[in-house]
Amino acid sequence: MPYTLDRLAAGSYDLLLDGIVIGGVVRDITADGEARQWRAELLDDLAPAQRPRPFIEIEHGFGSLEEVAAWLGDAAIGPAAQP
């Protein structure tokens, strides 16, 4: 299952699986503007048996974007797709 991350804006990526958007990856920012962590989340609240691997939960937290990409099987990180 090849995952890719397409940049939307600073700190925000579409999460694609085989070219289909299935979720997002975003950087959480505190009220004082400091980055805390990254979140990978599915768009749909799927039953556990229907979630694509490696998703055990609908949302998972990470310390960096690189950690997210590695967890997704070394997902490619790219610029936003052009219409």
Rank of each mutant, 00 (worst) to 15 (best):
A10W: 10
A10Q: 13
A10L: 11
S12Y: 11
L15M: 15
L15W: 05
L15K: 09
L15N: 08
L15P: 08
L17H: 08
D18I: 01
G19E: 10
I20D: 14
I22L: 11
I22K: 13
G24Q: 12
G24N: 10
G24P: 01
V25N: 09
V26R: 15
V26W: 15
R27N: 07
R27L: 06
D28F: 10
I29E: 11
I29Q: 12
T30R: 15
T30S: 15
A31E: 10
G33A: 06
G33V: 00
E34T: 04
E34R: 15
E34D: 08
R36H: 10
R36S: 10
Q37K: 13
W38K: 04
R39I: 09
E41W: 09
L43S: 14
D44F: 08
D44P: 01
D45N: 07
L46M: 04
P48S: 04
A49H: 09
A49D: 07
Q50L: 09
Q50G: 00
R51L: 01
R51H: 07
P52E: 02
P52M: 02
R53I: 00
R53S: 12
P54Q: 10
P54V: 01
F55Q: 09
F55A: 06
I56N: 13
E59F: 07
H60F: 06
H60E: 08
G61H: 14
F62Y: 10
F62M: 03
G63P: 02
S64Y: 05
S64I: 00
S64D: 03
L65C: 07
E66F: 06
E67Y: 02
V68D: 12
A69V: 00
A69M: 05
A69L: 04
A70Y: 09
W71V: 00
W71E: 00
L72F: 07
D74H: 13
A75L: 05
A76I: 06
G78W: 05
G78C: 10
G78P: 07
A81P: 03
